[in-house]
């Protein structure tokens, strides 16, 4: 869906998305990392199970909720990506805080 500008710097960080290796650029948010990796949705809704992807990228809509390093309901667009992060798509309802 999105690509990086050719001169926008290298994606040097290594993360996993649902266990599969992916690359990320320092300075990106987790949500941007997912979009750059071509992930088409980052969660399914608790009510109907519909797939959702980041919508506002600024912390308003909460569509970007993902599990990061085992902690659920993290707002992917507000969390800077870090080397070694394990990012997981979130399915349905998560307990509000684990």
């Amino acid at each position: 869906m999105f690509r990086r500008l050719p001169d926008a710097g290298e994606a040097r960080l290594a993360v996993t998305i649902d266990g599969k290796p992916a690359r990320a650029r320092a300075g990106d948010s987790v949500a941007a990392t997912l979009l750059a990796a071509g992930v088409d949705h980052c969660r399914t809704t608790p009510v109907s199970g519909a797939p959702r992807a980041p919508y506002c990228m600024m912390g308003v809509c909460f569509e970007c909720l993902v599990t990061i390093d085992g902690v659920g309901n993290r707002q992917g667009c507000m969390v800077p990506v870090e080397d070694g992060m394990a990012i997981e798509i979130q399915h349905g309802r998560r307990e509000i805080e684990r």
Binding site: A8, A32, A53, E63
Partner: peptide
């Protein structure tokens, strides 16, 4: 408007400013 692939123009601009990302497709 809830379908993946639909986002706000502001969100897309954030991807450009913060991550240097532009749409593909």
């Amino acid at each position: 408007w809830t379908l993946p692939g639909v986002m706000t123009a502001g969100a897309a601009q954030i991807l450009l400013k913060s991550s240097g990302m532009i749409p593909q497709g």
